[in-house]
Design a protein around this nucleic acid. Structure first.
Length: 281
DNA sequence: TGCCAGGAATTGC
DNA sequence: GCAATTCATGGC
């Protein structure tokens, strides 16, 4: 049973697919204009773009109930217009970037746990190597459903030994972080779904209590995991480089220099981050 | 080749 | 408390 979704606002699905394709874990087909995503319930859903940027139309294929349709809408930012965001940034220094990439949505992660694991793995590593490590992690400990890779469960990772991950070129600390956090989740000490109900500061406070999660990883989780619209990871090197370029500086701006100016982008600072990342891809 | 990478914990003062 | 150092390895 397929479902059609028509959006009454500009939405650039191709840019969403390109962004998703940066992560080799995702089953993206750019030319075919679709992505296959693993749902929490274990089934695979195909999201296919059959419209245009100006008249977005999507076909959802797979066994979907109403709840899953809503989940897909939330993940892909189908449930909220981008018009207000676009309008807001016209009055800021980011207007050229937003005009260039108009309609690029903030697509959420398919798995909260996967987002955290990916966040830890990517800390302080170049993207190419980080992706290699993430893919290795998923292929060895995760599972493939209808050809789509999914992250392993926290229960599986909680049972691993540090030495196993060391053999996969994880650093000692990274291995400890990944296993330790998975143990906390598997044993029930940390429930990621329940974090949704809390405010952002509380979520950051809880998450950063765990070894391996600092401000950057917590904000990464808020932005891409929960899809919070208004945060800007000032510690992110990629964003610092993007602002260096935008502001014509000969060095990266300091965190203070960023925070002095980023309130112009509120209440959509997450979109500022997303579009700035795009500007240096 | 040396510095950097979508950082975080630990140590040293 | 805050800054400097350590971790760890591929990429360019």
């Amino acid at each position: 049973m397929d479902t059609l979704i028509k959006l009454p606002f500009i939405y650039d699905f191709d840019s969403a697919l390109i962004r998703l394709s940066n992560d080799p874990v995702n089953a993206v087909n750019i030319q075919g204009r679709f992505v296959r995503i693993p749902m929490a319930e274990g089934n695979i859903v195909t999201v296919r773009g059959i419209g245009t940027k100006e008249e977005p139309l999507f076909q959802l294929e797979g066994m979907l109930n109403d709840l899953q349709i809503n989940t897909v809408k939330t993940i892909f930012h189908f449930d909220q217009s981008l018009d207000d965001v676009q309008k807001h940034f016209q009055q800021t220094d980011l207007a050229p970037i937003f005009n260039k990439y108009e309609g690029m949505p903030l697509v959420r992660s398919f798995s909260l746990y996967g987002r955290l694991m990916k966040g830890i793995i990517h800390q302080q590593l170049n993207k190419a190597f980080a992706n290699t490590l993430t893919m290795r992690f998923v292929e060895i400990y995760g599972q493939q459903v209808e050809g789509v890779w999914t992250y392993p469960s926290p229960e599986v990772v909680a049972q691993l030994q540090v030495a196993e991950l060391r053999n996969m070129q994880f650093s000692e600390r990274k291995a400890e972080y990944v296993i330790g956090l998975s143990k906390a989740i598997a044993e029930g000490g940390l429930n990621l779904e329940e974090l949704r109900q809390l405010d952002e500061e509380e979520i950051v406070r809880i998450l950063t209590n765990y070894r391996g999660i600092g401000p950057w990883t917590a904000q990464n989780f808020l932005l891409f995991g929960l899809g919070k619209p208004n945060l800007f990871p000032v510690a992110d090197v990629g964003l610092q480089n993007a602002l260096k370029k935008l502001w014509g500086m000969d060095r990266k701006p300091t965190k203070l220099e960023i925070t002095e100016r980023f309130s112009d982008w509120s209440p959509y600072m997450s979109y500022a981050a997303l579009y700035l990342w795009k500007s240096i891809e």
